Computed example of a mutant assay.
Amino acid sequence: MRAPLQFVLDFFTGGDPVQPKSVTPTAQPSGLSVSPTDRAADRSTDRSSPAVEQGLPGDAQVPVPSGFTHPTANRHAQLQDVVVSYRFERSRRKSIGFMVGADGLVVRAPNWVTLREVDAAVQEKGPWIVAKLQQFKERQTEQFQKAIEWRHGAEVPFLGRTVQLCVLERGVGRVHGQDIAPDQILPVTVPPGASVTQVRDAAQVWLKKQAKALFEQRLHHFAPLLGVRWLKLSLSSASTRWGSARNDGHIRLNWRLIHLPISQIDYVVVHELAHLREMNHSPRFWETVGEVMPDYAQRRKALRQAPVDLAQD
């Protein structure tokens, strides 16, 4: 039985929707895709490089595996089963250079270096590149986790605003801070003398419950507008993606979206539901998104700039 197709919305989303390149079908995603400018410049030495994105009969396309994507990526490499979309630039350097920053990977090479040589260097450097990208994400995650002190009275981002963490120890009989309005409280119940980790875990249980209820409500709202049917919702704790959709109607949404404003949550919901009609990022996909969300580009930009970093549990 053929496995369902899946498309994901990566954390490193960026850039404006672009026309997908026409590529030759192959059996499995592999190799590299080349920007039109570089393809023309190195046509004589780079003809054999297969593209990551592959065609299927008709207009459907196989989605690339999740990975790391630079906002202005113009080349892609599959490194250790991870697709890394990176920014490639020509420069006056004397050798090929690699830089990992907040946006992802940037590769620079002098004009006399062919794309084939660049591809080989990226593959050779693959383990280092993937490790550095993951380390960068983990550092961002640690910074976000440290930003919240999981103690009574802490402020926790929730739907674009903040709620106050109110801790009830079992047996005490009341929630500290009960004079605060209920919709401004994140209540948790923990054992006497609970650690910060226990308080955090209890708070995340509450946040996940709120997230699932809200996500289901938004899916029910937008699915009829798009003329699609979703069959299952799962909460995700992925470290590099906001959501994913499979063509069998299974939607996965990162529970940490609950920290963000509803406008950004709705964008992710619509994005994933639109994949139930178009399992790609073709112009027709973005037209589908725009049918119910004409301002999706602004919401997409806001999501890219969101201060919430995805973190692994």
Rank of each mutant, 00 (worst) to 15 (best):
T162G: 10
P110I: 09
V23K: 01
G55W: 10
G55R: 06
I258T: 02
N74D: 15
H275K: 08
R92T: 03
P187Q: 14
L303M: 01
D42R: 00
P127F: 08
G55V: 12
P127T: 02
I265Q: 13
V100K: 02
P29T: 06
L159T: 12
D10A: 15
V113R: 00
L186W: 14
K146A: 13
E155Q: 05
Y267T: 04
S85L: 04
G67Y: 04
A245F: 11
V175R: 13
H220V: 02
V199H: 01
R174T: 11
A121D: 02
P57G: 03
G243C: 02
Q264F: 09
F158T: 04
A202C: 08
G14F: 14
P63Y: 09
P224S: 12
E149Y: 09
T26M: 09
E155W: 05
V23G: 01
E287N: 15
D42M: 02
R90V: 10
V18N: 10
S35Q: 05
R246H: 10
G227T: 11
K21N: 01
A109P: 00
H259L: 08
Q28C: 00
T288I: 04
F88W: 04
V84T: 03
V199G: 00
F88A: 06
G126D: 12
H259N: 10
T24Q: 00
P110Q: 12
L276Q: 00
S282T: 05
P50T: 11
R90I: 04
V34F: 06
D16Q: 05
L9T: 00
E169R: 07
E216R: 08
V8I: 02
R277N: 03
F98A: 08
G101C: 14
P307E: 15
A245I: 12
L235I: 13
P261V: 08
D295L: 01
H281P: 14
V156S: 15
T189F: 10
Q123S: 07
L168R: 09
F144H: 15
H220P: 00
K301Y: 11
P224A: 09
G126E: 15
V196A: 15
G227M: 10
D38M: 14
S263K: 01
T69C: 05
E155A: 07
H70G: 07
R108G: 06
V308K: 07
V83T: 01
Q19M: 05
E142Y: 11
A306C: 09
A73C: 04
S244L: 03
H176K: 11
Q264P: 13
D201E: 06
V196R: 08
L115W: 04
V18H: 11
P63F: 08
S35K: 05
N254G: 09
R304K: 11
P127Y: 03
L186D: 15
L219Q: 13
K21V: 00
L105V: 05
Q298W: 04
R241K: 14
